[in-house]
Design a protein around this nucleic acid. Structure first.
Lengths: 255, 255
DNA sequence: ACCTGAACACCGTTCAAGT
DNA sequence: ACCTGAACACCGTTCAAGT
């Protein structure tokens, strides 16, 4: 017989806000946005649904806390964390000169790219975050991203009055992409690959009414070999160019 | 006694997809996103909840149809319609070259501003659209906006390979702002004015931890006399500058 | 073909009761 | 202080039954 240890593992650690949030993240990651239920969560925590309410005011707060937990680590680490797995964000390229995300970026532009890509990847790994960020008013998680963007904008040398606009434009772009990606993830069969999805949409677009959707039809073919991340960065660079050009405009206003 | 007309008004017009969508829009506008319920809708249409399902596959489709109805008129009219207005679902206009959108815009930039502002105002008038657009995969309503943006981008003279990026950057920015505005509207007391809201957030931001949120604190004062629309347009112009600068770059890449 | 409305399988949230 | 779990007031959706 094994000797009984003085401290046998308690059958359950006591409930805590942290454990609840972690369990919620797990549920959301594994089974999607629809799976986060107080009953499912309670079962996973081996307790009744009511117990959760002692630590958390309701579902909204829980979702916000879960989002904030992920975003907070993204913001400080620059890396996305996944539920069970340690995931190396792969494709760490493009970011800067050094591989180490979130650390020494040569230029503020690069720092912004790194940051934005961090959020992008976080949403990629946890699509529900995209939904949540678009739904959240400018509170903790969104504010966090705004703050960090703002600092880099400052470093970029943008004059004070324009800093707000620059930071929120970047933020809104990132949130827009995030929401869209989350929406796509929601619709997609869990199995579908990215290329598969793109190819399907490309075909759909190519079949659109030429009278109603001439432009969309026209760019349908470009969809096939477009990489989401690259595309995301291209848009970001467009904005960055806009920001830096506004600083020292070679020509005051384009015709 | 009044002579009975041959065609006395039927106690109820027959149910139809159109009437259902209109009623849904009314409900959403009047009482917010939470008020759209099949029971509430059925009551308003003087029928049972099951009846609706004969005309509409479910809630998602209904929300999408409602959003599309508003966006479609926004796109062709350039004006936002409010609840009372009779809307004919027809989408006929705008397709041609004459571009009756809003009014004659001198430059494609102006056309884009008009278009974007149309969506902005539509979300302002019907906050639930903002939520819906961020949640919707690139289907009808979102695609509509993308298409129209794309045409203007084309007119702007952006070379073919860059058109996709330009259009989707604009789109994502617009959707990001829309989602954020919808989120704010959701939280706000129906009575709260914009200035009141801004003032509250400004105070909140000014009270943030200086170590954690230096930038946000720093721009808090700017919030007080910022106009949402102006700010939205400023961000849009940043992107437009980026787009046109990329076309003929004076300096290839900013340092 | 179209409508009715009871019924089903869920929700989030509350709360008396327990430890 | 913290947990339990039945109960409440809702949902979206279905479906046998009606016209």
């Amino acid at each position: 017989m094994a000797t009984r240890t003085r401290r046998p593992e308690r059958r359950e650690e006591p409930l805590s806000r942290q454990r609840i949030v972690e369990a919620a993240i797990g549920l959301l990651d594994t089974s999607g946005e629809g799976a986060l239920t107080f009953r499912a969560l309670a079962e996973r925590l081996a307790t009744g649904p009511g117990a959760i309410y002692w630590h958390v005011t309701g579902k909204d707060e829980l979702l916000n806390a879960a989002t904030d937990a992920v975003i907070a680590t993204t913001m400080t680490t620059g890396t996305t964390m996944t539920t069970g797995t340690t995931m190396t964000t792969g494709t760490t390229t493009t970011v800067g000169t050094t591989g180490t995300t979130g650390t020494d970026d040569a230029t503020p532009q690069e720092a912004i790219r790194t940051l934005a890509l961090g959020v992008f990847d976080a949403i990629d790994a946890h699509p529900w975050i995209g939904t949540q960020l678009s739904r959240a008013p400018s509170q903790s998680p969104v504010l966090r991203v705004f703050e960090h963007l703002g600092r880099h904008v400052q470093t970029l040398g943008v004059p004070h009055p324009a800093q707000f606009t620059a930071a929120s434009t970047l933020l809104n772009y990132i949130l827009g992409v995030g929401g869209q990606n989350a929406a796509n993830a929601r619709v997609l069969q869990p199995g579908t690959s990215r290329t598969e999805f793109l190819s399907t949409t490309a075909t759909a677009w190519a079949g659109l009414d030429p009278d109603e959707y001439p432009f969309t039809r026209n760019v349908a073919d470009q969809l096939r070999d477009h990489d989401d991340r690259t595309e995301f960065l291209a848009g970001l660079d467009l904005i960055l160019t806009g920001i830096t050009t506004h600083q020292n405009p070679t020509d005051p206003t384009p015709p």
